[in-house]
């Protein structure tokens, strides 16, 4: 975990604003940006893969079995790109932060 925040004393900040934990942005949740929310209807999903790479926020988990699971709502900003590319109606956008 990144132990730096805006109360951290000066001497404990990394110099130059360097970050030594690459990829730690994952600790910053963007899910509360959503104003509409994708709902994954697994039963309709054919695992075609068309939504796998279109998510700007990397919020569609894909396992080693090449199958996707439900959205990662910690990060999903609700843009709806995934719903629009799904040919099977397996992703439905609903108003609001939560499904």
């Amino acid at each position: 975990m990144t132990e730096i925040n805006s109360n951290t004393p000066m001497d404990d900040l990394t110099i130059g604003g360097n970050i030594y934990q690459a990829g730690n942005a994952r600790e910053f949740k963007t899910g509360d940006w959503r104003s509409s929310c994708p709902v994954f209807h697994e039963e309709k999903c054919k695992q075609c893969g068309l939504c796998f790479a279109v998510c700007p926020d990397d919020s569609i988990p894909v396992g080693k079995d090449q199958k996707r699971t439900d959205f990662n709502y910690d990060y999903c900003k609700g843009c709806g790109v995934c719903a629009k590319v799904c040919p099977f109606g397996a992703i439905e956008m609903k108003e609001g932060v939560n499904k």
Binding site: N5, M10, L13, I19
Partner: peptide
Amino acid sequence: PIAVGPLDLQGYLFEHKTQ
């Protein structure tokens, strides 16, 4: 792997400059 040259906002730039 490290990251160098952030966007350094109001909560940090003052301290970084003073460092």
